[in-house]
Computed example of a mutant assay.
Amino acid sequence: MTKTLTTIGFDADDTLWQNEAFFRLTQARFAALLADYAAQDHLEDRLLAAERRNLGHYGFGVKGFVLSMIETAIEVTDGKVPASVISDLMAAGREMLRHPIELLPHARDAVEALAGDHRLLLITKGDLLDQERKLAQSGLGDLFDGVEIVSDKTARVYAAIFARHATQPAQAMMVGNSLKSDVLPVLDVGGWGVHVPHGLTWALEHAEAPQNHARFHLLPDLQGLPDLVEKLQGSHKI
């Protein structure tokens, strides 16, 4: 009998461990440094515009975030931003890159429960060195059969990943906190998408949940994931 699910992909940031909270803290520090030049809401709008504009150049992650903050600081001060502010922003970025990993509730239990019976993949965006560091510090690395650090998450990217791991999309599941990156593209290629919302979500990751999609599931946290996988396996429907 054909197995319903052979491969389960996990997003990393804000699915397995905390991430966006540290960006928010640094953004608050950014606003404080530039309080004499622009109001916080204006700064947030300008920074978000810079991040959107720079994604194609710098990609996702801390380094692109820091460069976008510096660019925004130059813009809102008409080029008069003090060197000390630039130095502080660079220091804030280095602190983010050194921050210890904080696993989210039930992350380890869920991954351990599914390892062995399924091919587990870590599929994440961001800076290569930073994501490798976080995975190593998480203690979860040995539980994954493959790690894919990609520049973006699209239907084409997921199809290529599944093909590399000898998986039909219909037998694959992706679990993550971003509807835009972790769920919708996988549904588009015929896989299962499991949305596990995080309390903080970057504005550029917002998307509408699919309505009445047979392969879409919503879980409040990772605790219920093993039971969901077992239920789907029991249905033997592809």
Rank of each mutant, 00 (worst) to 15 (best):
Gln233Phe: 06
Leu135Glu: 07
Val81Gly: 06
Val85His: 11
Ala92Ser: 08
Leu55Pro: 08
Val186Glu: 02
Thr4Ala: 10
Thr124Ile: 06
Gly199Ile: 11
Gly234Tyr: 12
Ala91Gln: 11
Met173Arg: 02
Lys153Cys: 03
Leu122Asp: 04
Arg53Lys: 11
Arg53Gly: 05
Phe23Gly: 06
Val175Cys: 00
Tyr37Ala: 15
Gly146Ile: 09
Leu114Gln: 02
Tyr158Ile: 00
Ser68Tyr: 02
Ala160Ser: 15
His206Trp: 11
Ala31Asn: 09
Asp117Arg: 15
Gln137Ala: 15
Glu44Asn: 14
His198Lys: 04
Ile74Thr: 12
Val147Glu: 08
Gly176Asn: 00
Pro100Asn: 10
Val229Glu: 02
Gly224Ser: 11
His99Asn: 12
Phe65Cys: 00
Phe23Cys: 07
Pro82His: 04
His236Asn: 10
Tyr37Arg: 13
Leu222Arg: 00
Trp202Cys: 11
Gly59Pro: 09
Gly56Lys: 05
Asp227Trp: 09
Gly141Cys: 07
Leu120Met: 04
Lys237Asp: 11
Asp109Thr: 10
Phe144Arg: 03
Asp11Ala: 05
Asp130Thr: 12
Thr201Pro: 10
Arg29Thr: 04
Leu184Asp: 04
Ala209Phe: 07
Gly191Trp: 04
Gln40Trp: 08
Gly9Val: 01
Ala49Asp: 12
Gln223Trp: 14
Ile8Arg: 08
Thr7Met: 01
Leu34Gly: 00
Pro169Phe: 01
Ser181Asn: 07
Glu230His: 15
Gly56Ser: 03
Leu128Trp: 13
Asp142His: 14
Val194Asp: 01
Val150Asn: 01
Gly139Asn: 07
Ala163Glu: 14
Lys237Gln: 15
Gln40Glu: 15
Pro220Glu: 08
Phe30Lys: 06
Leu67Val: 12
Thr6Gly: 13
Gly141Arg: 05
Leu89Lys: 00
Phe60Asp: 04
Ala209Asp: 03
Gly93Cys: 03
Val62Lys: 08
Gly191Pro: 04
Leu47His: 04
Glu75Pro: 10
Pro169Glu: 04
Phe216Ser: 02
Leu225Pro: 05
Ala21Pro: 08
Phe65Tyr: 09
Gly190Arg: 03
Ser87Glu: 11
Val194Arg: 02
Gly234Gln: 13
Ala91Glu: 11
Asp45Pro: 03
Asp109Ile: 08
Gly79Pro: 00
